[in-house]
């Protein structure tokens, strides 16, 4: 059953910016990766799902509820990490989490402590004094602490170090196991490839491809098998190039960069202009 549905969504900002005729859906218990370069329309689409923007045409719904008209009902069961988190800087992390819990009228959050521990975050500092990574962690805790069934995550790992990125990916995997429906945007192929079942690629406001992560991976990875002179050379080669050794033969796999994948779908044109929409 489709939990998140976007149908023929259009929002034209002029100058080729915006989203044009975007459609996709995310099923119950599925993780959907929303992939695209900066300014491709990921955040604009997410803003429609969040009920921040009214669709110029087309429709967005979550759990059968219209994302614009019934946004408060949609929000009851939703966790959101904004692409650019802006907190109340006057509060400490602890005060902020307490405020959000009271504001959302959620009772005791047994998940709060678990999440703080998982991301090694000490929330007692003033948010103003926190680093970008700490703020991101705080945003993650705020989005997950009320244990929502649906998660909309806009570039959730930005600012996190690789260790924390891995912890986040583990968290997503666990959530998925618990049947949560996840929409996660990213501009990094590796990130969505590791977490998502299906991937939608958006470019210049248009959905270029929606496919299973496995088949995208297959299509966009290239393998080379080389034969080396000795087993020891093969062993060393396999370690250096992260390959699979079989006797004297070593198979190495390369992933295409996001840009190359786009080139596949779009041909000629180079990287999109920067600038968030």
């Amino acid at each position: 059953m489709s939990i998140i549905k976007v149908e023929r969504l259009v929002r034209d900002y002029g100058g080729g910016k915006g989203v044009f005729d975007v459609s996709f859906h995310v099923d119950q218990g599925e993780a959907f990766g929303f992939l695209g370069p900066n300014g491709a329309g990921k955040t604009t689409t997410i803003r429609h799902l969040m009920g921040f923007l009214k669709p110029a045409s087309g429709e967005c719904s979550i759990n059968g509820l219209d994302c614009w008209r019934e946004r408060d009902k949609v929000q009851a069961n939703l966790g959101y990490i904004p692409g650019e988190i802006s907190f109340f800087e006057d509060l400490s992390g602890t005060e902020f989490l307490k405020f959000i819990a009271e504001y959302r009228k959620i009772g005791i959050q047994n998940r709060r402590e678990e999440l703080l521990e998982r991301f090694e975050l000490d929330p007692r500092n003033k948010i103003k004094k926190m680093s970008k990574g700490m703020k991101q962690k705080l945003g993650i805790v705020a989005a997950f602490m009320h244990d929502p069934d649906i998660l909309i995550l806009d570039e959730p790992t930005s600012g996190l170090d690789p260790l924390m990125q891995n912890r986040f990916i583990d968290l997503i995997a666990e959530e998925k196991k618990h049947g949560k429906t996840i929409l996660m945007s990213s501009h990094m192929f590796e990130e969505v490839e590791r977490t998502c079942d299906r991937i939608g690629i958006i470019r210049k406001g248009r959905m270029v491809a929606v496919d299973a992560a496995a088949s995208l991976r297959e299509r966009h990875t290239r393998s080379y098998t080389v034969t080396l002179e000795s087993e020891s050379a093969a062993e060393a080669f396999a370690i250096d190039f992260n390959g699979m050794r079989k006797g004297l033969k070593v198979t190495v796999t390369t992933k295409q960069s996001l840009e190359e994948i786009f080139m596949n779908y779009y041909g000629g044109e180079k990287h999109d202009e920067h600038g968030a929409v």
Partner: peptide, 15 residues
């Protein structure tokens, strides 16, 4: 303007 309105609107609270 600052974007922190997202914290208030991304919750089951009517605008």
């Amino acid at each position: 303007d600052k974007g922190s309105m997202a914290l208030l609107t991304a919750a089951p609270v009517k605008r």
